[in-house]
Design a protein around this nucleic acid. Structure first.
Lengths: 212, 212, 212, 212
DNA sequence: GATGAATGAGCGTTCATTCAT
DNA sequence: AATGAATGAACGCTCATTCAT
């Protein structure tokens, strides 16, 4: 947790530091993030960073937390249980690339922290943020099967893997496209292109690739 | 590229070093691989490693190269173009877990090097190993569409992403299960369990999750 | 020397800061005393401590000075010259543990500052506080010899060392016992136990350990 | 424990480093010993010190160990149990100042490590080196009482404190005299002066200071 | 005068790489 | 060619002190 010193900082400065922390932890693996660099970019002495935070890990967790909170508002994950999962994925994917305009680094950081094999403190992060993530998905799938939204002749676990994998790659594709098509300041995506891609992708999720 | 000194080494020693390099780079992120440890495990002086290789990166690329070649022989990727892609995926997945018995570390290394966000020298690796990987898959998909093996009303690129993602996660799932269920020496998988999982997964690929 | 700013402080606040300074310098070696901690415990800004004192060393010396003065009042060292030294030691020891109730930290600080090898600024402290301490003791011993209170066939210097050493260790023993047998708030010593120990100790001082 | 790298060093270099480590840890408190300084004085890169030792603490314990072993040879502490304690102290003190010629820093280091209140790792050091030091002394005293060498009308614990204290101060006095009377290279003590002081001191131990 | 954020020198430690033997 | 000791840049972190408000 950031120290009081940080929380008392003028909003503007706090935001600057938050942004820079998220950016650094999003674009480099943990061990390559150099507090000296971060401090320099914040136009602050290295020592000051340690007035604001307990240590590097504290900065990392703070960055994740802010990114996570920002992201949750987009996903509104919490009210998704009793929902048609096909609708959910459709909306989820759409939300993701809309989010990319503002939440590019947040997204990258979370992916890194939650999914990278080499993410340090992974257990702690899972404990704090993701504990029942897959179990949760399984529940949703079961519910959808019961409701007759999706087929019930396949093991929920396998469906879960299938969904996570395909959609994760799709998100990745969207994100990379988005990132490549930008300079550093603006992010103007051709939404319509993605919309189209998305509807095709959803068709695959629903119907598979087999010749109809 | 390894130096001549390395290539002139007795086969046995060369193999030992190769194995250990692959193991280390497979099980730890690049920056955590300690040349001291590697050398010690090879029963070779640290300095000797630098007689054999230009530097750490050279060792890393050598390990990837060997792992890649070994893996290709399993996948026989080269003659898969004119193949029913559904058959291919079915077989591909099966091959992967068969391969796990002998190629566990090779597989882990490649996954790390090719897909991990934090893989250092990623661009160079892509350049060297994967450049046309996706283009290649697209070609296969197009061919399959032309042959009428798979639906042709969806953009080949989207199908590619969908296939890569879902199957990558499925592979991951298999691999993790396999790794967790092993001690250090033997690797006895309950193949039948995976066979069953696989056939369900293939059903999803072919038909999607929509209620039939 | 504390700055005027400090001296002008309301008595209560001044006392609080004094107490806390003594406590910190008494219970930790100099370099482990953290001005941040001290300030926090004084409910004063860190910067304020530097309005009151020149620097850390200034705080240290101020603490020693106060502790020394308080201690001197117990020992009434000044009128002890023309005294039977055996009586003096007997009383001195008794006084020490009586003093422990109120002057625990003062005593610990002085011991640390005067006798610990690692006391910083030791020379300066000696200069300021102890300069003639041993010379003074020698004088007392000579006087006692002349009066026939103690044997005169041994060099006063040797007697001085003998007395200082034995009694210092005895004090230490008493102090440690006392400190160990206390919680944080009360200090109820079993005086009678120490009284008994003391009288035995005095016997040794007077008669030595030789079989009588 | 020093690493193999250190033990494999040429004897001369090893000795140089050992000497310098002992000197530094003997003359400064632990936290003021700067590995940079030590390395510089050893004419070795800072990093090399970490090839030789695990960490600073390892260097410290190594220095203590060497100093302790050297010292033990002088004290031959082990065969002192069944001995007239008066003889022992007489000899012990004599040995100490003879030792000072060669073991000045060793002695200072041990005193610091074993007796200073602020010695870091004190418990560990006690565990390793001193565990039953006082208990041991008590046993000796009891034995001496039984043998009729010393008075048995005083609690052995009190005698122990008395002996430790008086003789520790006497040793200190000898050591300081010795250290003050030297330049940096030679240490020529006027042994006869100390011999005389010693016999007077022993008289006090045996007979006390009371007028006979 | 009080505040508490800002500073920066300096410490212990790591590790890829070099180099003398 | 093989060795393994030597190197030194760089990192995370601490804390007495300063300084702007």
């Amino acid at each position: 947790m950031p120290k009081a010193t940080f929380l008392n900082l003028p909003e503007e400065k706090k935001n600057l530091i938050t942004e820079i922390l998220i950016k650094h932890f999003a674009t480099k693996p943990y061990h390559l993030v150099d507090i000296s660099d971060v401090a320099k970019e914040c136009r602050v002495a290295k020592g000051s960073m340690y007035q604001y935070f307990e240590n590097k890990k504290d900065m990392y967790f703070y960055a994740i937390e802010v990114a996570y909170e920002r992201f949750l508002q987009f996903l509104e994950k919490m009210d998704m249980v009793y929902v048609n999962i096909l609708d959910y994925y459709e909306n989820s994917l759409e939300r993701v690339w809309v989010a990319m305009k503002d939440l590019r680094h947040e997204y990258m950081l979370l992916e890194r922290a939650f999914f990278s094999h080499d993410s340090p403190f992974k257990d702690e992060i899972n404990e704090k943020f993701l504990k029942k993530s897959r179990d949760f998905l399984i529940e949703i799938i079961k519910y959808n099967q019961k409701q007759g939204f999706i087929r019930d002749d396949v093991d929920p676990l396998i469906i879960g893997i299938y969904l996570e994998g395909a959609s994760f790659y799709m998100k990745k594709f969207v994100v990379e496209k988005a990132l490549n098509s930008t300079g550093t300041t603006t992010l103007e995506l051709d939404i319509s292109y993605f919309k189209d891609s998305l509807s095709q992708f959803m068709k695959l999720l629903k119907e598979g690739i087999a010749k109809k």
